[in-house]
Amino acid sequence: MKAFVVYESMHGNTEAIARAVAEGLAIGFEVTVADVRAMPVVGDTDLLVVGAPAHAFSVGPYRTRAVATWHGMAELRVREVGLREYLGCSPWLPQVRAAAFDTNLDKPSLPGSAARMADRRLRVLGCSMVAAAQSFHLVGITGPLVDGEFDRARRWGGTLADTMCPVLPM
C-alpha cells in the first residue's frame, strides 16, 4: 500500500511532525513525504495525509505567510504556495482515504484549527477521512515542539496504518 504525506512548514516543526507520521505509517505503507511547495501530484495512493501550521487559526492564506516573512518569522521561500492553495487546486479524489494534522501553540483557548479546515477541504474533494483531525503542539510561535509530540506523531502514524491495514486474527 502507498501513503503520501504532504506538508507545509515555515520553521521546520510541521515538517518534523510529517516525517514522524511517515515513520509510523512505514509499518504498513510505502511512504512518500513531500513539501507542498513542490505541488506534488497525489497520483495512485491509498492514503493522503496533509499537515500545516496554524496561521490566523486556520490553514494560512498567502497574506498570513507573507506577513510572517516580512516580520522575519519565516524564510521568504515559504510564502508562495501553502496547503490552502494546494488543496484549492487539487483534483477530485473520491477513491482516496485521508487524514489531516496541524502544528499550533499549546493553548487550549485559541480558536480554530488548520487540521480541521484541511479535513473539511479533503471531504469536499471526495476523500474518505480515516481519523479525526489531529493537532501537535508548539511551545512558541516558531517552536520548538512540546516534549513528546514527535513520538505522539509517530504513534498517530502507526494508528493510521493500523486503521488502514488491520492485523487479522490467526
Score class of each variant (00 low, 15 high):
residue 94 P to Q: 03
residue 149 E to K: 06
residue 133 A to Q: 00
residue 69 T to A: 14
residue 88 G to M: 06
residue 45 T to V: 15
residue 12 G to I: 08
residue 8 E to P: 00
residue 101 F to Q: 00
residue 76 L to C: 06
residue 153 A to L: 11
residue 54 A to L: 06
residue 19 R to V: 07
residue 84 R to H: 11
residue 168 L to C: 13
residue 88 G to N: 05
residue 59 V to A: 12
residue 92 W to Q: 05
residue 72 G to I: 04
residue 114 A to W: 02
residue 143 G to F: 13
residue 6 V to Y: 02
residue 162 D to L: 14
residue 69 T to V: 13
residue 112 G to L: 11
residue 124 V to G: 04
residue 29 F to E: 08
residue 113 S to P: 01
residue 139 V to C: 13
residue 106 D to R: 00
residue 148 G to V: 06
residue 51 G to P: 05
residue 120 R to C: 09
residue 120 R to I: 05
residue 25 L to F: 12
residue 164 M to Y: 05
residue 37 R to L: 10
residue 115 A to I: 00
residue 5 V to S: 01
residue 52 A to R: 02
residue 104 N to E: 10
residue 134 Q to H: 10
residue 52 A to P: 07
residue 91 P to Q: 10
residue 119 D to G: 01
residue 7 Y to G: 01
residue 79 R to V: 10
residue 156 W to P: 00
residue 61 P to T: 01
residue 20 A to H: 03
residue 69 T to C: 15
residue 146 V to K: 02
residue 100 A to S: 11
residue 75 E to C: 04
residue 155 R to D: 14
residue 54 A to K: 00
residue 143 G to M: 08
residue 137 H to V: 07
residue 82 G to V: 08
residue 19 R to N: 13
residue 170 M to H: 09
residue 56 A to G: 14
residue 89 C to F: 13
residue 146 V to A: 09
residue 151 D to H: 10
residue 26 A to S: 15
residue 40 P to M: 10
residue 11 H to P: 00
residue 150 F to Y: 14
residue 110 L to W: 09
residue 60 G to R: 00
residue 95 Q to T: 11
residue 169 P to F: 01
residue 119 D to N: 01
residue 151 D to S: 13
residue 138 L to H: 05
residue 48 L to E: 05
residue 31 V to N: 06
residue 7 Y to Q: 03
residue 72 G to L: 05
residue 84 R to W: 03
residue 164 M to W: 01
residue 43 G to T: 04
residue 128 S to A: 15
residue 148 G to S: 10
residue 27 I to S: 15
residue 152 R to T: 12
residue 95 Q to S: 14
residue 36 V to R: 00
residue 47 L to I: 05
residue 31 V to S: 03
residue 27 I to W: 08
residue 102 D to R: 00
residue 140 G to K: 09
residue 142 T to V: 11
residue 168 L to D: 13
residue 127 C to G: 09
residue 165 C to V: 14
residue 150 F to I: 14
residue 147 D to Y: 02
residue 48 L to N: 03
residue 64 T to H: 11
residue 25 L to D: 05
residue 27 I to T: 14
residue 34 A to V: 09
residue 98 A to E: 03
residue 35 D to N: 15
residue 126 G to M: 07
residue 137 H to L: 12
residue 37 R to I: 07
residue 153 A to T: 03
residue 130 V to Y: 09
residue 27 I to Q: 12
residue 28 G to I: 07
residue 73 M to I: 11
residue 24 G to D: 04
residue 145 L to R: 00
residue 83 L to S: 03
residue 22 A to C: 07
residue 60 G to F: 07
residue 145 L to T: 02
residue 157 G to A: 08
residue 18 A to Y: 09
residue 64 T to W: 07
residue 42 V to Q: 03
residue 141 I to S: 13
residue 108 P to L: 12
residue 72 G to N: 04
residue 123 R to H: 07
residue 51 G to R: 01
residue 45 T to H: 10
residue 162 D to N: 14
